[in-house]
């Protein structure tokens, strides 16, 4: 019971902190002091106390977008286990539900952006859809490779079944699946090689541009939703890379959380040393992720 509560509440509480760690890492590497670690919590608190402004040209779709998006992402966070234990929601095939819950959240963000009728937001929506159409096969094929490797169709079983033994027997496949997941993680969360989270009102941004017209609590929902989404995808990546151990539950949970914050530091380092790719090179990066996933699944299928 406590395990289930921890599994539900911990992502909800800690998700915005992940972004704080990323920003702090970037600040330290650039020699700045940087914003407070808890900045996103302050932002959310401030936004929740503001009123929302709705344009007269928008319909109910625009108002529903942030709420449906947040609801879908929160449901998705219940499917992902934390600390290699049973997730609150698990059944055979739940990885497909996870992928399409994230897809649903994206769909509502996109149609809410299109609903405003602004050309700029339409541009962002078109980019988001183009790139996620390439990121999704990479994500699903990578998960399929892991599922075949562990002979399990639920995320709980997959992430709990990747042990030292699996790593020793099939390191190249796992490494390639993890590389594909890392690229998908960066692309889906609008991090640097694909999108620059620092820029506003720039012609090359993707995710920011779709939420420009949301204000107040709606914008808070969007910010919170994207931080939980980062936690969900990060938790899958971290637990796929870290082999499951037979240690006690608290130890596994601590290792998993340490892994999450190590991932945040890694993202901060990547953002500090790399520049954003040119727009036309992004599909190439995502196709590379698809190639990684495809190779992983081909090699996994070859194993007797």
């Amino acid at each position: 019971m406590t395990q289930i509560l921890v599994n539900i509440l911990l992502p909800l509480i800690l998700a915005p902190l992940l972004l704080g760690v990323i920003n702090r890492t970037k600040a330290v590497l650039a020699g700045r002091t940087g914003q407070p670690l808890l900045q996103l919590y302050f932002d959310l608190w401030k936004l929740l106390h503001k009123g929302a402004v709705y344009s007269r040209t928008t319909s109910w779709v625009f108002r529903a977008g942030p709420m449906v998006g947040l609801a879908a992402i929160l449901t998705a966070s219940a499917i992902v286990p934390l600390g290699e234990t049973s997730a609150p929601l698990h059944f055979a095939g739940d990885l497909i539900l996870l992928a399409y819950l994230l897809g649903l959240a994206r769909f509502f963000t996109v149609i809410a952006a299109l609903d405003t009728g602004s050309a700029f937001e339409g541009m962002g929506a078109s980019r988001e859809v183009t790139f996620s159409a390439l990121a999704e096969p990479a994500f699903l094929l990578g998960l399929a490779a892991l599922a075949r490797l562990t002979d399990n169709l639920s995320l709980t079983g997959i992430l709990g079944g990747l042990t030292w033994h699996t790593w020793a027997a099939s390191a190249p496949e796992l490494a390639m699946a993890a590389a594909a997941m890392l690229i998908v993680f960066l692309a889906e969360n609008a991090r640097i090689p694909v999108d620059d989270p620092n820029t506003h009102l720039e012609l090359t941004m993707i995710h920011e541009v779709m939420v420009l017209d949301h204000s107040g609590p709606d914008f808070a929902f969007i910010l919170y939703g994207s931080s939980v989404k980062m936690w969900v995808l990060g938790a899958i990546l971290v637990q796929a890379v870290l082999p499951a151990s037979s240690a006690g539950y608290e130890a596994r949970l601590a290792i998993c959380l340490a892994g999450m914050f190590a991932l945040a530091v890694l993202v901060g380092v990547i953002e500090s040393v790399m520049a954003r790719l040119r727009m036309i090179r992004v599909p190439q990066l995502l196709v590379a992720a698809i190639a990684f996933s495809l190779l992983a699944i081909i090699l996994v299928l070859r194993r007797p």
């Binding site: 190439q284 196709v287 190639a291 495809l294 190779l295």
Partner: peptide, 17 residues
């Protein structure tokens, strides 16, 4: 183009397998 060549490269592996 490059993305298509990468996918064709994966395809050659499938073909040879």
């Amino acid at each position: 183009n490059y993305p298509l060549s990468i996918l064709t490269g994966v395809l050659t592996l499938v073909l040879s397998l």
